[in-house]
Write a protein that binds this DNA or RNA. Structure first.
Lengths: 223, 223
DNA sequence: TCAAAAATATGAGATATCTCATATTATTCT
DNA sequence: AGAATAATATGAGATATCTCATATTTTTGA
């Protein structure tokens, strides 16, 4: 982890100013942190002292279960908050957050700004929206995971992450995210190839029948 | 649905005053609604005009999937908010909320108070906490549902809902909540009986080996 | 009070998904 | 460059869970 100073810091604070998200001069307290790919922004089970706001890069939220299984609870993107649970709740089991690419965040020290943050309607309103969306997404994924087989959820995931008709996510990440075994993921991908929905190109997959995937993914939607 | 008026209304407003949760005189606008068991407080897919705060009773949040499966996303209890998603988000697919017992709520009209609510730091702080807990619970349940078989999740559910060592939830509700088929739920319950963890008493089950259930449920916890 | 509807119950076969074992590539580190 | 590690790949058998069919009991509503 690297903390930007002086000119480099000012440059990022100008480029991604977040003053409009607060009604007090939060920028005085902000630090600018940079994390390398695969670095842990927050370690599982360890309380963080910062509320983070992501301005560049992306990450993953992980939790490890007693039986050794690991769940990738969600991805983190720009404009997401990290560590808001620790700001709001005295008691909380902190989930691990790992950078997927080089990631730059504004880090707001909780012990300095906590009180002000919790009294700032402008900030709270945004955070409330963020959390409401997060809660909704988790509820949706939860109910979908119980109601539909991997086939449907994977089709949705492929369409969401494919770039120019090419799907190239890492199998290992996808298993953790969709909560299935590596073996089973490969099995369903092979089925998709057999049915002609995808075509394997080395390590990647080309989408050859998007409509079929849309039909499978469409089953998930009720909204 | 019945709306309390006059003396009855005042009586509830005094008994469960929520003035301290707001920094503006919200009580002027509040209606007091009573719903019968099984009545829908909010109908799935239909926008509600109220933010509700539950003061007596309990309910269930439901969503229906295209494949006909129904998920019981969560239970609602006293001091919970209902309809906060509609207050915060312009676009939202409303989930159905059904009363599980006779339920009394304060109903705050969104078109009258929406703006004031969204500018009230005191209210927003509470709502933010509520949502953070909700998001955490959903994330936890989601990852658990993918990482553990019914055996563990059911053990946890039985311990949480049993009263004086007796478990007596309706199978149908439990299936929807834990996201498994009726057949499979019965199957695992029978296993529990065979192993001596439970003993069937007519329609109820008596917990005969709580420690075994605690061990199964304990696998879920990492916090 | 009786018929209809809902909830409980059980069997049997299908399928979605997991575990484990083992090879074959890539990628990373020294 | 070569060894170590991580990621991909595939087979085979086990198990968790589902679907469907059908029977019985309880609850509900006219």
């Amino acid at each position: 982890m690297e903390t930007y100073k002086d000119e480099k810091k000012q440059q990022y604070m100008r480029k991604y100013s977040i003053a409009h998200l607060f009604s007090f001069p939060v920028e005085e307290f902000i630090e600018v942190h940079q994390y390398e790919r695969d670095e842990w922004i927050i370690q599982e089970g360890t309380r963080s002292n910062f509320l983070f706001y992501v301005i560049e890069g992306k990450g993953k939220i992980y939790v490890t279960h007693q039986n050794g299984k690991v769940s990738l609870i969600n991805f983190i993107n720009t404009h997401d908050y990290i560590g808001e649970m620790e700001l709001l709740n005295e008691v909380y089991y902190t989930k691990g957050i790992q950078a997927l690419t080089k990631t730059i965040c504004f880090a707001i020290p909780i012990h300095h700004c906590g009180t002000q943050l919790l009294e700032d309607a402008k900030f709270l309103r945004e955070l409330t929206k963020f959390l409401s969306i997060k809660a909704t997404i988790m509820a949706t994924r939860y109910s979908q995971s119980l109601a539909f087989p991997l086939e449907n959820r994977l089709a949705d995931f492929i369409l969401q992450t494919a770039d120019e008709g090419i799907y190239k996510e890492r199998h290992i990440t996808v298993c953790d995210y969709l909560g299935v075994s590596y073996r089973h993921l490969l099995h369903v991908l092979t089925q998709f190839c057999d049915k002609g929905y995808l075509q394997k190109r080395g390590r990647h997959y080309q989408i050859t029948r998007p409509q079929s995937l849309y039909n499978l993914a469409g089953m998930l939607k009720n909204m």
